[in-house]
């Protein structure tokens, strides 16, 4: 694995989890989590992920994924971790983020590694579906569109369309992608780690905007409470089981489109079953980099992603932003 950490575990915890306190707007601990185990967020990093070149080393990425998965699920092998996520016979959707085209999208290498592990865990090729909003988004991210049912599928929502009926929660009324509602039994969310010019950040919670027909309606008020509400829509809440954030490259400013001048090689993955905890930690990583680069904080710019705290409030209970409830593994 090589040199994994750039800072000590204690420093890391101090920096990110303490920062996550800022995410709270209500200060109310979700009762849902009061009796639960801590939410584990694994930040897997490999300083040598890119070797001597600029491209990610697929073998090292694979190992990073394995180690992160073992850490999240507390297992001694990657396979036993994946078996805790999916069961043979299930159709598993991989919700990637392909909006920005090559550069700041979920990497094909990561998706390939996950597909391989899913197959080892008993998921047939035909039962793996890589999906996002549009075929063109997937293609520009490097995926080849395939809707044939006898192999791994890669389809945008424009292939199957959206449900006719609205799914409603809180402030949100949306038609959900049929890929999510009719095809997938389980979903693994594969966001990226980046700034968002309207919503503050786009990580795990925001990535689910790719499941609705009208995301343009829900960026107002820095996405609050809309992003949290979208994640409450039953098919999303019930089917999304795991979040693996591709942070091999991260972008701290200028998002959501790819702006290479504001990206840096984070060389890592953020993995959790709790999207709120993951987003809290991810936000602080971006804020730390902004401070380091002399860029104003999202709070100062009026686009702090308060939707993350909303997702943790008693009406949503999608996870926690409480530092005491987040176990950060490095």
């Amino acid at each position: 694995m090589g040199q994994v950490l750039e800072s000590s575990r204690r420093d890391f915890l101090k920096g990110y989890v303490a920062g996550a306190v800022l995410a709270r707007s209500t200060g109310v601990l979700s009762p849902f989590f009061a009796s639960q185990e801590k939410s584990r967020v694994v930040i897997g990093r490999d300083a040598l992920l890119r070797g001597s070149g600029s491209g990610v080393d697929s073998d090292r990425l694979w190992k990073l994924l394995d180690k992160s998965m073992q850490s999240v699920y507390g297992t001694d092998s990657p396979l036993s971790a994946w078996k805790k996520v999916v069961r043979p016979g299930e159709v598993v959707g991989l919700k990637v983020n392909g909006l920005s085209g090559v550069g700041m999208t979920t990497s094909v290498l990561l998706v390939e590694s996950i597909c391989e592990r899913l197959r080892e865990a008993g998921i047939a090729q035909k039962d793996i579906v890589i999906w996002d909003r549009l075929n063109t988004d997937l293609e520009s991210a490097g995926f080849r569109i395939n809707s044939r049912p006898d192999r791994i599928r890669a389809i945008g929502n424009d292939t199957l369309g959206y449900e006719d009926e609205l799914a409603i929660y809180g402030s949100v009324g949306s038609r959900l992608a049929k890929t999510l509602t009719q095809v997938c039994d389980a979903v693994i969310n594969l966001p990226v780690l980046k700034d968002h010019g309207i919503a503050g950040v786009t990580i795990a919670l925001k990535n689910m905007f790719g499941a609705i027909h009208n995301p343009n309606k829900y960026h107002i008020n820095v996405g609050d409470p809309y992003i949290a509400d979208v994640n409450m829509l039953p098919p999303i809440r019930q089917k999304v089981r795991l979040h693996i954030c591709d942070a091999t490259t991260a972008q701290y400013e200028g998002g959501p489109s790819f702006k290479p001048q504001w990206t840096w090689p984070f060389n890592g993955l953020l993995v959790s079953t709790d999207p709120v905890a993951l987003d809290s930690v991810g936000w602080q990583i971006l804020e730390k980099k902004r401070a380091e680069k002399g860029v104003e904080s999202l709070q100062a710019l009026g686009r702090a992603p308060h939707y993350i705290a909303t997702a943790a409030d008693p009406q949503h209970r999608l996870g926690t932003t409480e530092p005491d409830r987040i176990q950060l593994d490095l």
């Binding site: 309207i198 343009n216 960026h219 107002i220």
Partner: peptide, 23 residues
């Protein structure tokens, strides 16, 4: 490459490859 829409009072600021509020 950002733009600001001046058609309606919402004045959406839109990044490359992104849509306005009206969609």
């Amino acid at each position: 490459k950002k733009i600001r829409c001046k058609l309606c009072p919402r004045e959406c600021v839109i990044d490359d490859r992104e849509r306005s509020y009206c969609g």
